[in-house]
Nucleic acid binder design. Structure first.
Lengths: 228, 228
DNA sequence: TGTTGTGAACGCTTTCACAGCT
DNA sequence: AGCTGTGAAAGCGTTCACAACA
């Protein structure tokens, strides 16, 4: 079945493609040329049917009886994820985290160069952080237009995060990576990914507690199983 | 319907409870005493039915015709998430991120004190970072036992991450917060949350590209709609 | 009246199972 | 013989819609 119209990949699959890509890059680095859905599934910690379904959304790029080619699949995933071009990032909030992101050289080689960092604190504006100078947040719109920025990272304090988001949206940004522990009010036309360690820890905490309660009831069960 | 046996909350709901808790803490700080599912839904960016279903997993703690009480609900969510006690955290990898986590005082007050940091680099062992001294990773098991640590944060290089995970599991850790861009091989009895900015950016990239392609076809559509 | 709590319907995601190719 | 690609089934999660009730 050929589908020449726009393919829409289910969100759940989109979230897994970067993980597959990571693994395939590793396989490529270790000179592995081919892989089967079983192998990738084992490395990704999912099951093989899921891998095949996910990869099938890209097109029919496998060979029955043989498997998939590493380099070819890397290319296809990169194409589908929009990684054949660069996406410029602007950081809002020149605190510890913001400056760390601006200095960190790890994003540019992966296609996400940080091209600007802004703040509203006059003391910070003009200071250098890595190769960048902190700009006034009031220049955000111009900066976004001139440097064709599409992604904004919010690294402000919690209290400033919503106005940072407003400024980014006003400036024409359509994707936000939010590090502030707050739910941003944004139009549905803008994508947001939240990175909140507090939330992650609390989720872990829930499963920790479940484990403890489960083992409690198990040991109770055990003592029931060996009655006096 | 009363269910006295162990309640198991769906994973999707568990992931939202910390977000609700965040919002309720804010409401509490601004002296709001009550809220309706509609209000919380608006603040959390979800719909009201989902809020009610999620909260109903905690028990029937609302009042029909009135709503929910902020402080009471905070208490119930905290109880359910296992936040009535502290969960000690150990950091593996005393690099930039690891030291930042150890120094950062933001976790202890939220119930997740970082009680240790380890590395395998002799140059780093013994150095101070915040209130902690970097320990030898070989002391991990003793550290985990003595300080009753349940959560391990992996902040090593990618290449060292799997052995860090192995060491944590060997030491008896049951929850891992992984910052390395790699899928860890771990037993299913251990919970893992991955924090990978590369993955987040690539997901945003996909939706950015979709937006562009959509607007391309729209403008094409537009030019079709106004033919020469 | 106003809002919760919840069966039932719906839609999305995962898994199964096997036809279809190499 | 072996592995992919995919309909169909099963399983979850979300939303609807309304009875229950303060």
């Amino acid at each position: 079945m050929t589908h020449s119209q726009r393919r829409r990949i289910p969100d759940a699959a989109v979230a897994r493609l970067p993980v597959y890509l990571q693994i395939l890059n590793n396989l490529h680095a270790t000179n592995v040329a081919r892989f089967s859905s079983d192998e990738l599934a084992a490395l990704a910690g999912v099951n093989a049917a899921k891998v095949r379904k996910d990869l099938s959304y890209l097109g029919s790029y496998g060979t029955r009886g043989v498997g998939y080619e590493v380099t070819y699949l890397i290319h296809q995933i990169r194409r589908e994820l929009g990684l054949m071009r660069e996406w410029n990032v602007v950081v809002v909030g020149a605190g510890n985290l913001g400056c760390a992101l601006a200095k960190f050289g790890g994003f540019a080689p992966r296609g996400f160069p940080v091209v600007g960092i802004v703040d509203n604190d006059p003391k910070k504006i003009g200071q250098s952080t890595g190769a960048l100078k902190v700009s006034d947040v009031r220049n955000l719109q111009k900066l976004v237009k001139d440097l064709e920025v599409t992604i904004g990272a919010i690294t402000t304090s919690t209290s400033a995060a919503q106005s940072a988001a407003d400024a980014l949206i006003e400036a024409g940004i359509t994707s936000i990576l939010n590090f502030a522990p707050i739910v941003l009010a944004i139009p549905s036309s803008v994508s947001v990914r939240n990175v909140d360690l507090g939330v992650e820890l609390q989720i872990l905490s829930y499963y920790e507690q479940m484990r403890i309660e489960q083992s409690d009831s198990k040991s109770q069960q055990k003592s029931n199983a060996v009655p006096v």
